Amino acid sequence: MVDFELDDLEQMALIEGALELTAALDPGFPVDWVRLQLERLAKEAEVALMDEINPQLRLDGLIRLFYREWGFCGDQEQYFSSQNLYLDQVLDRKKGIPVSLGAIFLYLARHLELPVSSVGFPTQYIIKISWYDREPQYLNPFDGEYLSERTMAAWLKGHRGPFTELRCEHLDEAENGDILARWLTVMKSALLREERYADALRCSDLALAFRPGDPHEIRDRGYIYQQLDCNHAAAMDYEYFIEQCPEDPAAKLLKLQVKALHEEPLVLH
């Protein structure tokens, strides 16, 4: 299904890894067009900020250019739409979610030689700016606003509970493989919400190429098979999950589901 390895993705820019994954999911994805658009934006940014030698002012200029002049913004109305993950549509609509907007912004910032990196914060993707002479800054790629530790701590408490504390490891630089795995998870969820089950199945199979045997991913694939009326395949995936995660609360319900699936007539596809 894929002609690259996880190690290959780690060596690529995040945006290139995202392009490779999307092309693996959708052979018709216009990779070359996306690359041309990215190169055009990079050249525009370079020309607009060529006289700005101060790195902080160059970063502020890129934020202004990207979010105000070019009009990129987070999609508040259709946050969970797959449109926000296909980079051709993100570039065309100028709307996305943190990870897709962030991948584009990261590409442009690195083109301008700014010290930026990815952070897989528990609630969303954020960008870290690591200055050599002062504390790092954190940028929310959804709206281009700087994030305080107080804000990120509040996000974390809302996500994991009121006693959760913000720790240094929450703000560590993330590897591309981890970010792209989350990208795939969000993509799969969006495709399931849109009832695009065949596309979601390709997404799940690709995720399993990087996490072979992951019981939760196999459980999700079982659900997709069930929606596609592949009951025997669904039952096999559910049984694998039950065997691997017998204490999981979902296991008991899935045992009943497996029994019902085995009672269904076999459908040949």
Rank of each mutant, 00 (worst) to 15 (best):
D3E: 13
F4E: 03
E5I: 07
Q11R: 15
L21V: 09
A23D: 08
D26W: 03
F29Y: 15
R35Q: 15
R40L: 12
L41A: 09
L49T: 01
M50I: 12
P55I: 07
Q56M: 14
L59E: 04
D60T: 07
L62I: 05
E69N: 08
W70A: 04
W70G: 04
F72H: 00
D75Q: 04
Q76T: 12
Q76F: 12
Q76V: 14
Q76Y: 12
E77D: 15
Y79G: 03
S82Y: 08
Q83D: 14
N84F: 04
L85Y: 09
V90W: 00
D92F: 09
K95G: 01
I97Q: 02
L101M: 04
G102Q: 01
P115N: 06
V116N: 00
V116T: 12
S117E: 13
F121A: 01
I126T: 00
K128T: 06
I129F: 04
W131G: 03
Y132E: 14
R134V: 05
P136K: 03
L139H: 02
F142V: 10
E145V: 10
L156A: 05
R160S: 13
E169Y: 11
H170N: 14
E173R: 10
A174N: 02
I179H: 00
I179C: 02
R182G: 07
V186R: 09
A190P: 01
L192T: 04
E194N: 06
R202P: 03
D205C: 09
A207M: 14
H216C: 07
I218H: 01
Q226W: 13
Y238T: 00
I242A: 03
I242D: 01
P246T: 07
E247Q: 12
A250G: 08
K255E: 14
L261N: 04
E263T: 08
P265Y: 11
V267I: 12
